[in-house]
Amino acid sequence: MLPNLRQTYFVIFAGCTSLILIALYMQHQMGLHPCPLCVTQRVFVIAVGLIALVAALHNSKGFSNTIYSGLAVVAGIIGAGVSARHVWIQNLPEDQVPACGPGLEYMFETFPLFDALALLFQGDGNCADVVWSFLGLSIPAWTFVAFVGLIVLCTWQGMRRA
């Protein structure tokens, strides 16, 4: 028997929470400092998780389920796009890697919002470093895989009926 909509949204929320906890473990225990694109991917994982949590708490059905799942899919697609860009930067030849830019905090304090966001999505030289991998895939590649899974699951949620 399939889990109901509410249970599946809680599973999505738990998955997103696990991804963030893994990221925090890698940052604070393993000493892997996130680049701007890593931070952006975290924001979209959190967004999908929060949308799923609200949908579960609301016990969405019918049209509201379609809205929640649609919002989660959109956040997942944007996150997957950021992850794909990050993987692309990691696979550029060394002479084509973007120069290292200012830190994330400096960008948002100094530049107008849209200029800071444009710089953020460009990535920089720090984003090209592969500091950890598992089964031949880097952290952004695994994050891309996770986003694809979240997109599939949220799409399925949107097509289900209570």
Rank of each mutant, 00 (worst) to 15 (best):
G49D: 01
G49A: 04
G49F: 07
L50H: 07
L50T: 06
L50P: 02
L50C: 05
I51T: 07
A52H: 05
A52I: 00
A52K: 03
L53E: 00
L53F: 12
L53P: 11
V54Q: 08
V54E: 09
A55S: 06
A55H: 06
A55Y: 12
A55P: 03
A55T: 11
A55E: 10
A56Y: 10
A56T: 13
H58G: 14
H58R: 14
H58W: 13
H58V: 15
S60Q: 14
K61N: 14
K61T: 14
K61Q: 15
K61H: 15
G62C: 10
G62T: 15
F63C: 15
S64K: 15
N65W: 09
N65Q: 06
N65Y: 13
T66A: 12
T66D: 12
T66M: 07
T66L: 12
I67A: 05
I67R: 11
I67F: 04
I67G: 13
Y68P: 12
Y68T: 03
Y68M: 05
Y68E: 07
S69L: 14
S69V: 15
G70Q: 08
G70E: 09
G70Y: 09
G70W: 10
L71F: 06
L71S: 08
A72P: 09
A72G: 07
A72S: 11
A72E: 04
A72F: 01
A72C: 08
V73M: 00
V73T: 01
V74I: 06
V74W: 10
G76C: 01
I77L: 03
I77V: 04
I78Q: 05
I78M: 10
I78H: 03
G79C: 02
G79I: 00
A80P: 06
G81N: 08
G81M: 05
V82S: 02
S83E: 09
A84P: 07
A84W: 11
A84E: 02
A84T: 05
R85S: 03
R85D: 00
H86S: 03
H86Y: 07
H86F: 02
V87K: 08
W88D: 11
Q90W: 02
Q90V: 02
N91Y: 15
N91A: 05
L92E: 07
L92I: 03
E94R: 07
E94D: 14
E94G: 11
